[in-house]
């Protein structure tokens, strides 16, 4: 019965943090709650006997994909007002609820790890079984996934490159202006 209790607690945490994430006014707070929701999902994956999926959920979803969001949010806030804005966003008070939700999940994972093998021994599908299936009958899916990732890579490069080129051109113009100013100053000195 304990697994059931753990499942319902993790499910509640995931639900609460998802609702909070969708209803936040500012993107950083929404991102924090979204990460907690993903951590809750990872615990659910572990409890239903998919430890590999749980690890991937944390590594790729909560790690890599959310970091992309953080990068973009922080990138769009560059400039003079950015620091002030971040200061306003990250008030000490707003950490309380995410920390509490995280602590619930931490308690669960501590409990699971400390009680040893009480995870569902019968139903666990480990990484080995997944790998055998993945590179056996599903090898075509791997190829399709690789093509999809290539398309994503090319698309992101193409879209992001124009952004970066424009930013760099602005920088170059500024540098040229600075150089002209320096030259004028030198000319005056001479």
């Amino acid at each position: 019965m304990l697994e059931l209790g753990l499942f319902y607690i993790a499910a509640s945490v995931a639900l609460i943090s998802t609702i909070l994430s969708v209803t936040r006014y500012n993107a950083t707070h929404a991102l924090i709650y979204l990460i907690i929701s993903l951590l809750g999902s990872a615990i659910i994956f572990y409890l239903v006997g998919a430890p590999f999926a749980a690890a991937l959920e944390i590594l790729i979803y909560a790690g890599a994909i959310m970091v992309l969001f953080v990068f973009v949010i922080m990138m769009l806030n560059l400039g003079a007002s950015g620091d002030n804005q971040e200061h306003r966003w990250l008030q000490p008070g707003m950490w309380i609820l995410p920390s509490m939700l995280c602590l619930v999940l931490l308690g669960e994972i501590t409990y699971i790890l400390s009680t040893g093998n009480h995870a569902l021994a019968g139903n666990v599908v480990g990484p080995k079984a997944v790998g055998i299936e993945l590179f056996g009958p599903y090898v075509l899916a791997v190829e399709i996934a690789s093509m999809l990732l290539l398309a994503g890579l090319v698309g992101a490069y193409q879209l992001g490159r124009r952004y970066m080129v424009d930013v760099r051109e602005d920088d170059d113009l500024e540098k040229e202006a600075d150089a002209d100013a320096d030259r004028d100053v030198e000319g005056d000195a001479v």
Binding site: L56, I60, Y61, A64, I65, L68, F69, V72, M75, L76, A145, L148, L149, A151, G152, L153, G155, A156, Q158, L159, G160, R162, Y163
Partner: peptide, 17 residues
Amino acid sequence: LTIAAAEVAVGLGLLLQ
């Protein structure tokens, strides 16, 4: 997961534009 990664990469590129 793969779809999510590709979608986020392209979506964030569009967002920058």
